[in-house]
């Protein structure tokens, strides 16, 4: 993102400066990489979804899409993908907002420690963290054996292979993507503003609700969008922590790619997911400056 800033950030602003300065040259390798590594495969996949047709489809280019939307399980899994992504976003927000607020209030040294606490798990493999959650959530796992040892419960709590388990895992993994934009936004809020509100007689709660919170809303929207979009593509975590009821679309795509070699249908499924994600981004761009979402990660 840092590389893109000269082009898309500063120089791209409406006021002042040339549209593209010489730093923009640095972005060319990145653009080529995006073009060759991402955009071209995406186009190939789009073509494949309407040309790689199963036998007996009589050349109907929409066959793969009909197969997808005709399947009861496919639609359920698609709905499920949104449901889980939405709940994960809410979960991240509920934990991430107070956390970022705490970082904002803390001294720079403590804020740094809190930041590290969010980021350290982020540096270990997603697979390792997901397996760790399995160990924690199982009937014979850490939570249940501890609670049973203390005599608090007789029957194990249903955690492993439940929606709760998936949400716990996904929320933990996605939390940094919520905390960072939130913290960046909150750090930009002038502390004098809440003081001014207090001077004018507002209680701390009122000052927070009427002054601080509204100013932090861009961060809330940015973090939520980032988490939601990332969650839509999740695969391993729901597969390992959830039951088949929590299957997300990516897992279905993987089966088609790896086991059935049905790349036409897999492409169609992927295109559906891409299309929906773009719609989400488009709708979000009406409310949020999407640029800030992805630019917010590097601190000003």
């Amino acid at each position: 993102m840092l590389f893109l800033r000269p082009v898309f950030g500063r120089a791209g602003r409406r006021t002042g400066g040339p549209l593209v300065n010489r730093w923009a040259l640095l972005a060319i390798p990145v653009l080529i990489f995006l073009l060759v590594g991402f955009l071209a495969p995406l186009l190939i996949m789009a073509v494949r979804s309407v040309t790689d047709l199963p036998a007996g489809s009589e050349g109907d280019p929409l066959t793969n899409f009909r197969r997808f939307f005709g399947g009861e399980a496919n639609l359920r899994v698609l709905g499920n993908t949104f449901f889980i992504a939405g709940l994960s976003t809410v979960g991240c927000l509920l934990i991430g907002y107070p956390y970022a607020y705490l970082m904002r209030l803390a001294s720079p040294r403590w804020a740094g420690l809190l930041l590290i606490a969010v980021l350290v798990p982020f540096w270990s493999s997603l697979l390792v963290r997901t397996y760790a959650w399995q160990v924690i959530l199982r009937d014979t796992g850490l939570i249940n054996s501890t609670l049973r040892g203390w005599g608090i419960i007789n029957q194990p709590l249903d955690l492993y292979q439940t929606t709760t388990g998936v949400l716990l895992g996904m929320t933990q993994i996605l939390l940094p993507f919520m905390v960072l934009p939130l913290f960046t936004t909150m750090a930009r809020i002038d502390p004098e503003l809440t003081k001014a509100a207090a001077n004018l007689g507002a209680s701390p709660t009122r000052a927070f609700l009427r002054v601080f919170f509204p100013l932090s809303v861009p961060g809330v929207l940015a973090g939520s969008l980032l988490v939601f979009v990332l969650a839509l593509g999740f695969y391993i975590t729901p597969a390992l922590l959830g039951s088949p009821k929590n299957t997300m679309l990516s897992a279905f795509i993987a089966t088609r790619v790896q086991q059935q070699l049905d790349w036409g249908l897999a492409s169609a499924m992927a295109m559906v997911l891409v299309a929906i994600t773009l719609v989400v981004l488009f709708l979000a761009s009406r409310v949020i400056r999407v640029r800030d979402v992805f630019g917010a990660l590097d601190a000003e």
Binding site: F8, F38, L42, L278, L281
Partner: peptide, 8 residues
């Protein structure tokens, strides 16, 4: 463009 990058 950034959106596409993220999706991918």
């Amino acid at each position: 463009a950034l959106g596409i990058a993220v999706v991918l």
